[in-house]
Every structure is written in structure tokens, then in C-alpha cells.
């Protein structure tokens, strides 16, 4: 049997340089605690995304936020691919959309800026003791329809937010998936 502390230990990155704690501690779990997040905390998490930089300050993102127990939560869950079933235990779901056209015209940086905004949200969450897991595997046409997401907004990621759960009681399949170190490419930069 594996405990949550053991998973956290396995996920500690093998670092070449000393990065900030929130980035060290961050990983994307599949086991969440079924516990409410206060609206104060959710407000801070969303506010972090709001202050992200973006190309020409176009802020080409939109978020749908769904709290567990509500209809919106159920609707969002129904769009996830089967292997993301664990998401239903998270406290909050956020649907991250990019907006690739506005009054200035087409925006080639929409997806990129959404990625930045979500990362701000992730880092803010982690600093408050919450974990986040982003998913790209969901039925995008279906979610557009049931949440009436209108073009030019396009749903791109579904994000779970919550406290990390109890791995000793989790499905073995999830434990096996998460009981792996955070592997990274050795070289991602070079001086020229």
C-alpha cells in the first residue's frame, strides 16, 4: 500500500538548480480530496490568471468555473474522456478557453497566452496548498454545445483543482499512474 506522502516523495524533482518551492512541489495528481475550496481561495486563483502578460495585452482567455455538486460540474465531467474519470473527485473544474480573434483581428498568440494564464493559476494554487491537473483529452464539440461556448472562444483545457487525496484508498490504476517520477528532458536550453 502506498501513502500520499510516498507519492509526494516520488514526485520530488531531481533538480540541477534550486527553483522556487511551488515549482518543486508541483505535480499533476489523479487523486483529489473531496473538500470544498473557499470562494476566497478560488478568487485568488482566478485573479492570478488575470494578471498574466499577453501579446498586446489582448488577454485572449476565458474561464468557466464549476464547483463540485453543481450542474455545470456534471456537464463538464460528461465531456471528459474515460481515462480522466478521476476528475469527478476534484473540488473544482475550470474550462480554459482561448480567444483567437478580437477587435484587433486574428490572434496567433491566443493558445500561448492561455498556456501562460493557466500556469499562473497553477502556481497560485500550489502556493495555497492546492494541486492542479490539466487535461486536453475531452470532447471539445460537446462541451461547446452544452456550455454554449461561442466562437471565437474555444475550449482547450479542462483543469481540476483541489487538495491532494488519500492514495492509500485510491484505485490501483491511479496509484500506478502517479507512482512515477517527474521525468524531464536533460537539455532544454543552449547558449549561442
Amino acid at each position: 500500500m502506498i501513502t500520499t506522502d510516498q507519492i509526494i516523495e516520488v514526485k520530488k524533482p531531481k533538480l540541477k538548480a534550486n527553483i522556487i518551492n511551488v515549482l518543486k512541489e508541483r505535480f499533476s495528481p489523479r487523486v483529489f480530496l473531496e473538500e470544498k475550496i473557499s470562494s476566497k481561495d478560488i478568487n485568488s486563483i482566478i485573479e492570478a490568471a488575470r494578471w498574466t502578460p499577453s501579446s498586446s495585452n489582448r488577454q485572449p482567455w476565458f474561464f468557466y468555473v464549476a464547483e463540485k455538486g453543481g450542474k455545470g460540474f456534471e456537464k463538464t465531467i460528461s465531456c471528459l474522456s474515460e481515462n480522466n474519470y478521476w476528475a469527478k473527485y476534484a473540488s473544482y473544474l475550470v474550462v480554459g478557453c482561448y480567444i483567437d480573434e478580437d477587435e484587433k483581428g486574428k490572434n496567433n498568440y491566443a493558445q500561448y497566452d492561455l498556456g501562460q494564464a493557466v500556469m499562473s493559476l497553477v502556481i497560485q494554487s500550489q502556493s495555497m496548498g492546492y494541486f492542479v491537473h490539466q487535461m486536453g483529452g475531452f470532447d471539445k464539440d460537446k462541451i461547446k454545445e452544452i456550455l454554449t461556448i461561442q466562437s471565437p472562444a474555444f475550449p482547450w483545457v479542462i483543469i481540476t483543482i483541489g487538495k491532494i487525496g488519500d492514495y492509500s484508498k485510491a484505485d490501483q490504476i491511479l496509484v500506478d499512474k502517479d507512482n512515477k517520477e517527474r521525468k524531464r528532458k536533460e537539455i532544454i536550453s543552449e547558449k549561442i
Partner: peptide, 24 residues
């Protein structure tokens, strides 16, 4: 080194880490 190490541990779809940096 610290700044690039922070980027290295970012999350990515299927852990593909589709990034690379050149600096001068």
C-alpha cells in the same frame, strides 16, 4: 540555470515538453 530549470519542470500535454530555448 535556475531560470531554465523552472521552465524544465513545467507541465505539458502527455509530458512531451515541446519547448527549447536559445539564449545570448
Amino acid at each position: 540555470n535556475i531560470i531554465f530549470e523552472a521552465a524544465r519542470f513545467a507541465p505539458s500535454g502527455w509530458n512531451f515538453q515541446p519547448w527549447y530555448f536559445y539564449w545570448a
